[in-house]
Design a protein around this nucleic acid. Structure first.
Lengths: 142, 142
DNA sequence: TTTTTGTGTTTACGCTTGTAAACTATAAGA
DNA sequence: TCTTATAGTTTACAAGCGTAAACACAAAAA
């Protein structure tokens, strides 16, 4: 089983999805206004991105009066998880741990986030291997 | 201060860098053989990617006899850190913690990795905020 | 020395992306 | 009903990317 043929969302499109996810539903003028402010994009740019997201199936639209209302059809957290997993999947597995440590050092986490992470780590510890092999070159250990 | 004008390495190029990083130095035929095996790429494809990486400055080459030897000019760990940081920087900050937890649940970490992460988390805990705000829409909390 | 072959360089080509203008249709206001 | 503003659709266009063939050159083999 695999997670339904992952829709590819580009960086610019991702920004649009963020506001759609956060607001739950949006009109193009709303997004245009926000993106003008946040990204400096022209209205035309937002229209293009909305159109592409509809075509990709990441958004759906419903006609209400003159304008459409757009709704996300994919969920935010799974999308984030997938994007992150894809990135880490392309990296040397031996270095994933260090990379995570470096990242945790840089981001802001809430008390709850930290507690949750600690819980997961505690559960993993007992069965963790002594070391993780490099998988960059077939049949080669770093 | 900012980390030297980040060289952009594409997905396919990244695969080439991985073998260069792991082996320290490589010849094109070496890379070609590995990529034929690992990715199913033709020799020509590898040549193109090596050329682009040279042009981008991610690799440098030294002529030895008939062929060139290629060396990475950027380091692996900082490159990984930067790629990861960039991805997370484009995501809702409020969801970074959950995303990290989901990720940790999926990857393989060594005992040492886990210990290191636990140490960093323990150090962060005392000063961690109660919650992290959503930054997807200017002046909006989720 | 001549031929061959392994390397690097150029050219190719369709697709995606970022960024946007132009065009069109229709709801809303006059 | 006629006009206008506004939202959606088409077209644009250069740069980057994945994927590779064609070409040129020099080193190695004959």
């Amino acid at each position: 089983m695999e997670a339904q043929t992952a829709i590819e969302i580009s960086d610019a499109e991702w920004e649009v999805m963020r506001v759609a996810w956060t607001l739950g539903q949006v009109t193009s003028s709303q997004v245009a206004e926000i993106m003008a402010d946040k990204m400096g994009w022209k209205t035309a740019t937002v229209k293009t991105l909305l159109g592409r997201l509809i075509k990709k199936g990441a958004l759906r639209s419903e006609k209400h009066g003159r304008a459409f209302t757009y709704y996300p059809t994919v969920e935010e957290q799974p999308s984030m998880d997938m994007a992150v997993k894809t990135l880490f999947g392309h990296m040397c597995q031996m270095r994933v741990g260090q990379t995570l440590t470096d990242l945790v050092n840089q981001v802001t986490l809430s008390q709850a986030d930290i507690a949750q992470l600690q819980a997961v780590l505690a559960k993993k510890a007992p069965t963790a291997p002594a070391m993780v092999d490099c998988d960059c070159v077939p049949g080669e250990r770093c």
